[in-house]
Every structure is written in structure tokens, then in C-alpha cells.
Computed example of a mutant assay.
Amino acid sequence: MKTRKRLLWLMAWVLFFSLAFPTTAWGAVVDVEADSYVLMDADSGKVLLAKNEHKRLPPASMTKLMTLILAMEDLYKGKVDLKEKVVASENAWKLGGSQIYLEPGEEMTFEDMVIAIAVGSANDACVAVAEHLDGSHEEFVKRMNAKAKELRLKDTHFVNAYGLPDPDHYSSAYDLALMARYALCYPKLLEFTSIKEYNLRQGEFKLYNTNKLLWHYPGTDGFKTGWTNEAKFCLVSTAKRNGLRLICVVMASPQKGGNFRDSMKLFNYGFAKYAYRSFFAPQSQCGLVSVGKGTNDRVEAICTQEVGASCLKGEEKNITYKRSLVDYIDAPVKKGQKLGEIKVYNSGRLVKTVDLVAYRDVERCGIWKEITKAMSKIFCL
């Protein structure tokens, strides 16, 4: 009977600690005060640590990550130009919270407006950009929710583009990590969120990035802080060291600065336990393909993204790759045309597939060019 009681007490204590503290396969405990968080491997999307990751909470200004995503999508599609003028409306002017104090009718470039969002967390700039891209703030918010659905964010709904509180405005740590992973598709977004200081209005108004990890945690280059009384202290961030990129989201950290302290603890855990083995950087040449009937005899095959994978430290040798590439293709060849792929494995298990594509166009040559090429080959023989 005593043995049974001791066993029950032991099981109760184990259950208590498993609920109270996040643990890992290593048995490690990370002391994080945030109500909800996620640490994710950016390359694979694998969650390395988490607590209440699907809990719906107010995201505050982390909302602006989706605003920036849509702005970058339109930029990369050519729907807007960085030097294009954006005119502030009265709706933007009258908005409260963090702002750059836009006046009705004031003009700024699209680039300055986006940087004001990324660096200064400007609510008024969010409205100005939203209206410029979609005609109204309301239409832009519809697009935000459509994008959330496209990314399969199950615990996210937006009411505005800037993050001021509303009962129907919420997200989760996991959803924000997925947003951050998608945001990495746009290098310009990462460039903007890594700016520490920026001068607006010919230096009359200076912005300081609200993400203090940029100063205090090496490798950090994104994304957005968040704070309201309801949301408490929040941060969605990313850092990269020795090829390993991690994404961290903390929500509802109770103490001022706690969002930064919690994030650093989670990042420390990730960089201590995991490594990244890289074989080819993005856009690297990974082979040559012979081209028939073309203006060139060969075309370079490049990888569309980094070829490599993350793993536990000490197990890098388990990461391998296999390349498959066509030997020959007839012209015309279009830039970006798929020519093969590289498969990356971890201990024999497929973890990633990267397309190999043509680096440039190769036009089909005319009949006289073909004859000339054929004759030159004959005489060379």
C-alpha cells in the first residue's frame, strides 16, 4: 500500500512539472514567463519548444507582420514601387497609439511608410499603406484575413492592420511563427525589420527600432514587437547563426522587457542544441545541362533555395543529399525552367526537396546558326 501511494505521489509531481514547465527530449527546462510561446526551426518548420502555442491571444503590434507581408507581396509583384508617393488620409492622421504623426495630405514614399511600420511600429503608416494598396483600410483587412486562411492560420483573425485591441482580433504563437516563416520569402522585409535607426522627413523625425534584440542578441534581423495592456509584452523574432535560422514568438510576457529576456532564453536553447549543415547557398550553380539547337550549348542549373538541413549538434554527418539533373534539353530554355532537383536526407529520411532551375534564357538558334555550329564541329573533328 505504501509503495502504491509513493508511486501515485510521484506520478502527480511528474504531471505537475510537465504542465508547469516546458520540457524537451533532453529533459531540459527553460525558464520562460510568457503565457504562450514557440521556438521553430525556420528551414523545416519543426517546433523545437512550445507552450500554449495554439492559445488565441491579442497580438498587439505583431499584427503588423501581416501588414508588412502584404506590402512586400505587392512590391515583389510590381503593383507598387518603393519610390511611389503615398498620401496620408484623415483616417491615418486621427489614429492613436504609436505613430509618426502623419498630417492629412502629407506625402511620403512607399519605402518610408513601410520602414515606419517595420522600425517605428507606426499605426498611422499602416492605415496609409493599407489605403494606398487596397483603396480602404477595411478592404486591406479583408485581404489580411484571406492571407491568413491561405497560410492555414487556424487561430488568427484580424480586425485592423495595426493591432489595437478588439475582442475579435487575435492570433496564436504558432500562427505568428508560420507568418514569420512565410515572411522570410521576402528579403526586403527582413532588410527593413533589421534597421536599427532611420531618419524620416529629412532627419527631422528619427525612428528607433522597438526590437531591442537587434542590439543585444547577435544574429537577430527581424521582426516585430507588440504591447498593449491586454496583450502584455510580445515579440515575434528571428535570428541566424552558423547557417541555422530560428523563429521565436513570445506572447503575454508579464514584465517589461520580459519579451526580450524570454526570447533570448529560447534562442539560447535552440542554438545550443541544434546545428545546420549547408551544401549550397541559394542561387548557387549546381550543375550544367547541355542545350541542343540553342544560341548557347549549355545552361547553368541553380538551386532556388539553400540546400541543407538542421539537426541535433553532433549529428551533422547524417545530413546528406542526392542530385538529379537532366543531361540534355532542346532550346528554347526559359530562365527559371526546372531542370532537376536536389533531395536532402537526415539519416536516410527525406526532409527537403529543392528545385534546380535554368539560370538564364537560351533562345533557339536559326537554321544558318545550326548549320554553322554543325560545320564547326565537323571541321574540329
Rank of each mutant, 00 (worst) to 15 (best):
E341L: 03
C286M: 12
K335L: 08
G308F: 04
K334L: 12
G287I: 09
V362T: 06
V354K: 02
Q285E: 15
W368R: 10
R323Q: 15
S310H: 01
N346A: 11
K352L: 11
T295F: 02
G287D: 13
G340H: 05
G340Q: 00
D327R: 14
E316M: 07
V354D: 05
V299M: 02
S290T: 10
S310R: 00
A331V: 06
V354E: 02
L356H: 03
T353G: 03
G336N: 05
S324I: 08
E341Q: 13
V333A: 03
P282W: 04
G287T: 12
V299A: 02
G340C: 11
L325V: 10
Q337V: 11
V291W: 00
A281W: 03
G336D: 07
G336E: 05
Y328V: 05
V333E: 01
E341K: 09
G348T: 11
V344K: 00
S310T: 13
P332R: 00
L350I: 09
C365H: 00
G292R: 10
K369F: 01
V291H: 01
S284Y: 02
Y328P: 07
Q283C: 07
K338I: 15
G340M: 05
R298C: 02
R323G: 09
E341F: 06
V289I: 10
R323D: 07
G340F: 00
E306W: 02
G314R: 03
E316S: 05
C303D: 06
G366P: 14
P332Q: 01
I342W: 01
L325K: 01
S324V: 10
I342A: 04
N296R: 11
K313P: 08
A331H: 01
N346D: 14
K313H: 08
Q305D: 15
Q285K: 14
G292K: 13
N318F: 08
V351R: 04
K338Y: 03
I329F: 01
I319P: 07
S284M: 14
Y328K: 14
R349D: 11
